[in-house]
């Protein structure tokens, strides 16, 4: 993955405008916007206001693919209705780590119809970023999803749709080139092995850190690759029923509870360890795939300053041979 090459084209300013105009014909532009409260959010962009760089927004494009709380279907009298289709959105200014996260979600939700319906409507446009103090991204971690990557004077086609747009705008002759990943944090990411993790059940680090964990769920809400959800049914007074899908969280007391009263993760330490396992080792077909893209969001939002990297380091010290 380290040397993945993509068709790259020179990008003079007039072609940028042409490209953006072409995209605007079919897609609504979303991108990072900062409010008066200094929080960066992905939002519909005012016309002509393009981001200069990618931004680590509060929530990632995850919120467009797997909305925080959205109806899946409703039932009224005798009719059953699927939730309305998503409209086409082009998200511009996405950092490379967030594009990796979309690749990961694509694997997890490969057969999930509501996800795929939304995914099809999304055009993802990456841009270069300024790595911050919290950043630990790595080009070697996993492939990335996306359609275009717009650099300072070159543009890369990441998908067939992206390639089609560039051909439409006559961007010149393509060269196969690697993406300009930010320099700096690469390779400093925490990793744990299956063996280390399995022998860590009694490690004191889980207990120590979980003493401070508030179980507020902020870390996994902002995580670009956390995808736990719950299904919630409710009826209105007139008897119509709606089934919603809403973000869930492995830190919540009910997350590991099952019918019959058993709780797979009865304490906060168990839940912290579970989240670590999910992030660094993965489950199912993705076992062995580290899904922490290193964006640093969880560290930034945790009121108790809990840090997965620090826990991983401690695990190596406490359990590693």
């Amino acid at each position: 993955m380290i040397d993945a090459l993509f068709p790259s084209y020179p990008l003079p300013q007039d072609v940028v405008d042409d490209l953006l105009d072409t995209i605007r014909r079919d897609w609504t532009f979303w991108g990072p916007c900062s409010g008066e409260d200094e929080v960066w959010r992905l939002q519909p962009l005012p016309e002509g206001l393009w981001p200069a760089n990618a931004v680590t927004t509060f929530l990632t494009v995850k919120k467009l693919l797997l909305p925080q709380r959205a109806a899946l279907w409703s039932h009224d009298q005798n009719s059953y209705r699927k939730a309305g289709a998503a409209s086409p959105v082009a998200v511009i200014g996405v950092p490379l780590c967030d594009l990796q996260a979309v690749w990961y979600l694509d694997q997890v939700f490969a057969e999930d119809e509501p996800y795929l319906d939304r995914r099809k409507q999304l055009l993802l446009i990456g841009m270069p970023c300024e790595p911050g103090a919290e950043c630990r991204c790595s080009r070697q971690l996993m492939p990335l999803a996306g359609d275009l990557f717009v650099g300072a004077d070159r543009v890369w086609a990441l998908s067939r749709a992206g390639q089609g747009l560039l051909l439409e705008c006559a961007c010149g002759v393509a060269e196969e080139m690697p993406l300009p990943w930010p320099e700096g944090p690469d390779g400093q990411r925490s990793q744990i092995s299956e063996d280390l993790f399995l022998s860590s059940a009694a490690a004191s680090i889980w207990f120590d850190e979980s003493q401070r964990c508030l179980s507020c769920g902020a870390c996994s809400a902002v995580c670009p690759t956390c995808y736990c959800f719950d299904l919630l049914d409710s009826a209105a007074l007139d008897g119509s029923v709606v089934r919603r899908r809403a973000w869930d969280n492995c830190f919540f007391a009910e997350h590991g509870k099952v019918a019959g009263g058993h709780d797979f993760r009865p304490g906060r330490a168990d839940r912290l360890r579970f989240r670590m396992e999910h992030k660094l080792l993965g489950f199912g077909d993705l076992r062995g795939q580290n899904s922490c893209v290193g964006c640093g969001r969880c560290r930034g939002v945790c009121p108790a300053e809990i840090d997965l990297d620090r826990i991983a380091e401690q695990l190596h010290l406490e359990v590693g041979s």
């Binding site: 929080v39 769920g217 902020a218 719950d230």
Partner: peptide, 19 residues
């Protein structure tokens, strides 16, 4: 009705409010 026993923090983060 389906409901989630979760803290206000989670809803607050989902709504991207300043903490």
């Amino acid at each position: 009705p389906g409901r989630q026993l979760m803290p206000v923090c989670m809803e607050c983060r989902c709504n991207e409010n300043r903490c």
